[in-house]
Amino acid sequence: MGEPVITAEKVFFSYDGVPVIENASFSVAEREFLAVIGPNGSGKSTLVKLILGLLRPDSGKIRVFGKSPRKNSHCFGYVPQDVAINRSFPISVIDVVLMGRLRHHGSSRIRDRDRKSAVESLERMGMAGYENRKIDDLSGGQRERVFIARALTTDPDILILDEPTASVDTGGQAELYSLLRELNRTKTIIMVSHDLMVMSSSVTAVACVNRHVYYHDQGEITQDMLDMGYQCPVELIAHGQPHRILKTHEDES
């Protein structure tokens, strides 16, 4: 793996005085497949938004290709959490994907070229023919593919997905992982997940977030990491010998 594409140095962030991220330092190498894991409310989405430049750290520094994230925001393809999106909004699939081509040539106009790129991205995600369907009429898994298509049509260097498997069934998840593996050949991928169904054969690094960030540049999840970052029942499939670790809540009898 080459030069780091993202570096974080002693990053602190708080909401209304409540610390969410404390003293996070790590660097993400090029073409890394980083899984960001941690329990609900641990600050995973916040960490991702700090990397994207949507939030500003209270202190510390984040650099993307050597510049502030805001200056390099065109490098990101972002797939937000499905639940964060207004569901009743009247919008067709193609209009969602075309958002990825906004300001592609510096203006707010959409050209034929952009339309072609949007259709290609949809084809790549197996969603050809759905262009004029209303997004609200699709299933959770289909919506997820549309959002990934939107991210891909921006031609990103770094693909960031926030809980992409939350509304996808098991078969769809396997398909999603094989697609991400393929994209990983040319792109750095950061994927947030809270259910820890991590396919370690794809993942090359893991960040455990629980206010602190524990970064491991190996795609394996060890008992130590779980003890540090994760205090919930977890289920994981690890590289090599598949095994499950089930840890119960301490406050449960």
């Binding site: 065109h74 999106i85 075309l98 958002m99 906004l102 707010s108 921006t154």
Partner: peptide
Amino acid sequence: IYFYRDMIAISYDVEFARLRGV
């Protein structure tokens, strides 16, 4: 009409719009 695409973007997904430089 001129800002139609931008209007869709900031109404539907403001964070994504910001990342695109809108």
